[in-house]
Design a protein around this nucleic acid. Structure first.
Lengths: 213, 213
DNA sequence: AAAAATATTCACCGAACGTTCAATGAAAAA
DNA sequence: TTTTTCATTGAACGTTCGGTGAATATTTTT
């Protein structure tokens, strides 16, 4: 019989969903901290006081499926959020302020799910080429959007003519440096994200600004 | 008895050194490709047709010691090369050309030992804090050197006044984007290093140039 | 209340792991 | 030549790994 109307979830369904959620959260923490191979499934089980076999009830295909679920769900979250941020920026706001907000939002967005970010970058060997391509497209979209924004600002007479894709990459690459610091521990910035981003954008906008010409 | 003069190496010493070198090379390849935990010691042994126990003759402390040796030797190479490149740049060469050469050399330098670069970034969990700090310092030194170079160019009247440390980071961050691509497979550049670097430096120098003011 | 469906436990499996070690063979030192 | 040194072997060890499955507990459905 086909169930057309959604029936109210039973208490055990709620508990199961809660356990699944908790399982993914703990796995994400451990994968990000120790790495996929360095995290035994039993470590996940211990961390939430769960018997060893139970994890195969929730993820029949085992450890690899847990990883795939983590990155897939993280990707979908990112995709959803990114699509809805595009309309925030008003044309009256000065470019400096726009770029600052943009860079900070992007950074907050990255570190809001820091663990999955680390996993997606570090565990390339366990992710499909297709998934990595989709990730690349997501970021490329965002950069194209920034390039268009800069072009509009030029056409409005606010800044000089630019190589817009290059300029967009200059904006985005700031966050990449912090990402690399997070992954490797190698710190070449020596200041907070806010300070660094402010200085960089100030300098970019100062030279791009039409008054300089 | 203490050996004061170096005696000529015996044939077995030469063979041993060759095998040690080969062992480290194969281990480096595998660690970079599969990751440290995902590479069984036996995979290294098989790859060079070596019996299982022998690796403990060369590296008594086992797998971890192999990793440490790889990154330590890679660091020393980098340190040595970096110290001797500083004097190459003449003051008569235009800034655009200087920065281009600099960025390309730096990139060649990174990918000339691509494997150890990947390992140093990805396997943070297996490296000491002290080692990571030393790596940070190495890159920071290089960036300070670029900042000084830019300052000199300003004082020579070639470019406007800059926030030199920030400008240096803009130069270096280009290579970081390619590094991240190498590690994660996430590609947001879509062109060769040479093309990208040329465009970026052209744009930077164009706006920094004193003639623009 | 009985039956069915589902969640959970845990002892256990075979394979793979890093590592050890007694034995072997060949080169170097005496 | 004899002795000593040391590179090399490969079987074996103890451990841990991801995963299985029969048994049990709990909830939902009938």
């Amino acid at each position: 019989m086909i169930q057309l109307r959604k029936k109210p979830p039973t208490s055990r369904e709620l508990l199961a969903e809660e356990r699944r959620r908790q399982l993914l959260q703990v796995a994400k923490d451990l994968f990000a901290e120790k790495g996929f191979h360095a995290t035994p499934i039993r470590a996940i089980n211990r961390a939430i006081g769960m018997a060893d076999g139970l994890i195969y009830h929730y993820f029949p295909q085992g450890k690899q499926q847990i990883l795939e679920t983590i990155v897939q769900e993280a990707f979908e979250n990112r995709y959803r959020v990114m699509k809805q941020v595009s309309t925030v920026i008003s044309k009256e706001v000065p470019l400096r302020q726009v770029l600052l907000t943009l860079a900070e939002r992007m950074y907050e967005f990255i570190i809001s799910d820091r663990q999955s970010t680390l996993i997606m970058i570090r565990e390339r060997n366990h992710l499909s080429d297709d998934f990595v391509s989709k990730l690349s497209e997501l970021i490329t979209d965002r950069m194209n959007w920034i390039a268009d924004l800069l072009k509009e600002r030029h056409e409005a007479g606010e800044i000089a003519e630019l190589d817009y894709p290059i300029a967009a990459k200059q904006i985005v690459s700031m966050n990449f440096m912090f990402l690399l610091r997070d992954i490797s521990g190698i710190d070449v910035i020596h200041e907070s994200h806010k300070e660094f981003v402010e200085k960089t954008i100030d300098q970019l906008v100062k030279f791009w600004s039409i008054k300089q010409m």
